[in-house]
Write a protein that binds this DNA or RNA. Structure first.
Lengths: 191, 191
DNA sequence: AACAATTTAACACAGTCGTACTAGAATGAG
DNA sequence: CTCATTCTAGTACGACTGTGTTAAATTGTT
């Protein structure tokens, strides 16, 4: 039998290389050749893992969602609902390089998804996950609020989260973003 | 003297053609050739107005800012502060095709600005304008709040606005977005 | 050591990109 | 009508793109 390769590990390495290219040079630079060079692979090897560029981009988005979801799922429960909410929401904010990269990937490919059906599906899955997270946070903080009010708060929280993500990429300080988010979370728990 | 051409009108026509291409096919499709074809012009004519692609993209962003600012400036004052605030903020939301196009341009090029210094400067000017608008809205609704509180509300409003813009592009209904925004504006006026 | 399966390297193809140049068409002023 | 000036069409160049294909190198098993 031939050279044995851990394909899953390789796929992740390729995706991470693509992330680096995207963060460094923008979405337009994520070409098969650039990513292969960044991953120190032949373009043909990359094509075994991802036959088309579209597959690669979708994998970029999907792995980002998987990673973030895993981190949130791994959080230890906390008794304080506000602290728990902030911990969960904070996993979607760029407090370290890892999360900063993921957020940029999410936002950049989210825009690309506006004119790419394949990306659109992957993006909607992640978007739905964030929506569920927001709904669960709202439910835990304002359990007694009427349903329509919770729905509105969920939309509000979701938009705030994505808006802060955008501003963080454009240079907003993580402190300011965290404070803004915390203030809204607190207002939910009081209402 | 030769053919007389209204250069400003032509530049705007070119930029609008570029907008159409960007909205229809994404930012990657905004090439000199595609835009020239969309504007029914020779590529050489386009190059007279915008010598480089970067110039064209910057103009796309700048004209968008100019148009939106002009619309906001042209609003008739209203006695009701909440109504005035919603009218001003609403000018940044896609309630018609015109605004929808502009919002998409703003968001798409805002992402492109993350890895393009020329675009970055143009984007920051518009971003600063929106920030000023948010600050003025907050000031008119919560004149008695302490300064730090107003600063936080401004950041909150700004993030909410951009987050809703993103969600609107991804299919959120304008009604839901308007309701969410109105609810926050109302909460500002009560506090 | 020899085989077989997989990975890699290298190249090829057709297309588009930004940018540049040149020759000719169009047109307002005299 | 003529001229001067501007605009346009067309072409060209080198670089890059996604996608294939083919031959050679690599390596676990027998």
């Amino acid at each position: 039998m031939p050279k044995l390769i851990d394909h899953q590990a390789r796929e992740e390495a390729i995706v991470e290389a693509a992330w680096r290219v995207m963060v460094r040079d923008g979405a337009a630079a994520v070409s098969v050749r650039n990513v292969a060079a960044e991953a120190d692979l032949a373009t043909a090897s990359l094509r075994r893992a991802f036959p088309s560029q579209s597959d690669l981009l979708v994998a970029c988005l999907t792995l980002m969602g998987t990673r973030a979801e895993a981190r949130i799922r791994a959080l230890r429960p906390r008794p304080d609902a506000v602290a728990m909410a902030m911990a969960q929401l904070g996993e979607t904010m760029p407090l370290d390089d890892q999360r900063r990269v993921e957020m940029k990937v999410y936002v950049v490919l989210g825009i690309a998804a506006l004119s790419d059906p394949a990306l659109r599906a992957a993006h909607q899955r992640i978007d739905a996950g964030i929506e569920r997270l927001c709904a669960s946070v709202v439910a835990s903080l304002s359990p007694s609020a009427p349903r329509s009010e919770r729905a509105r708060a969920t939309r509000h929280l979701h938009a705030l989260l994505d808006g802060l993500a955008l501003h963080l990429l454009h240079g907003m300080s993580p402190r300011a973003a965290t404070n803004t988010l915390r203030q809204y979370v607190l207002s939910l728990s009081k209402a």
